[in-house]
């Protein structure tokens, strides 16, 4: 059996997404226990290779590994031989030689997760590659929406803000569409990618035109660190046109959700008290992050090979 990876939502497809969401119901139950830990991945080692800063993604992967009884190796560039000039390939081969079963990688360059399998036999999870993809974020968003709205099929989801630089948007669009939702991208023309024609989504630059219709308003962070030139006249003007203000939340459907992948720029894409709004599920997203990452690790490392499966005869 070839090694499974989660580098992109495309690696999973609809069936893979459904399988991970089904596993998540189990791990949700596990996380409510007195001892929120199972021995499922005992003896497995998971390396966390983060070339970019992260709080919630790295911590949730680490927590997920511990709750599955796997060991985790933490790697951050600040305290490693990367500072001495070690290449990505050498670093990956070094970690691989220590015997790891999965590598969770975040890197500023697009495509890094696709390079890794030629250097290591470990399963690869993409925790963000440049402005390309962030599949586990999309999975936890699907899980959060499904828990609050029942299913994604037929739901209208508007993704608002800095689409151009957002890996979250790219993974979420694929996952939402795979589960039957319709997606509208909302952004000023400068922050809208120019090749959206074959993405299967609607686009608009008028935020107010989608608010009443949307089942989910998915607010993206203004990625100030990835923006090399000014895409908006000022953050204040952006907040006026595309920020989710208290007045705008009043126009939302009765049963609808506010989501944000974090970290938030309060006062820019969302007003300062939106996280505490009754429609906001932003805190649920964080809690579901650990659960989804348990499912992702179990999906990759918990299954055996097909050949052994056939000869098995246990009750």
């Amino acid at each position: 059996m070839t090694q499974k990876h989660i580098r992109s939502i495309d690696d999973l497809g609809q069936s893979g997404i459904e399988e991970i969401l089904a596993l998540s119901d189990h791990f949700h139950e596990v996380s409510t226990r007195r001892i929120p830990k199972v021995p499922a991945l005992r003896g497995k080692t998971i390396a966390l290779l983060f070339y970019e800063d992260s709080t919630r993604t790295r911590l949730s992967f680490e927590t997920a590994a511990k709750r599955l009884s796997a060991d985790s190796l933490n790697f951050s560039i600040g305290s490693s031989s990367v500072k001495k000039g070690e290449s990505l390939r050498d670093t990956v081969e070094t970690i691989s030689a220590m015997g790891v079963d999965a590598i969770v990688v975040r890197h500023g360059s697009v495509g890094v997760p696709w390079l890794l399998p030629s250097w290591t036999g470990a399963a690869v999870i993409n925790a963000g590659d440049g402005s390309h993809e962030h599949p586990t974020q999309a999975l936890l968003d699907c899980y959060t929406i499904r828990n609050h709205l029942g299913e994604l099929n037929g739901k209208k989801i508007s993704i608002v803000g800095d689409i151009k630089h957002s890996r979250v948007a790219r993974s979420n669009i694929k996952a939402f569409l795979a589960l039957g939702a319709s997606v509208t991208l909302v952004a000023p023309k400068t922050l809208m990618p120019f090749n959206t024609d074959d993405w299967g989504v609607d686009t608009t630059d008028q935020f107010d035109s989608v608010i009443e219709d949307s089942d989910v308003l998915y607010m993206l962070r203004m990625q100030l660190e990835r923006q090399q030139s000014s895409y908006v006249p000022s953050l204040r003007e952006y907040a006026n046109e595309y920020g989710l203000s208290d007045i705008r939340t009043q126009n939302m459907k009765p049963k609808s959700l506010i989501m944000h992948p974090g970290p938030m720029n309060r006062g820019v894409e969302v007003s300062s008290n939106v996280k505490e709004h009754p429609k906001s599920v932003i805190n649920n997203q964080v809690a579901n992050g650990v659960i989804i990452r348990m499912s992702a690790l179990y999906y990759l490392l918990g299954s055996g090979s097909e050949t052994k499966f056939e000869s098995f005869d246990d009750e």
Binding site: H26, V38, A40, L41, G304, F312
Partner: peptide, 10 residues
Amino acid sequence: FYRDDIGIRQ
């Protein structure tokens, strides 16, 4: 999640 054949079979 407590089985001893995780990783040997599905």
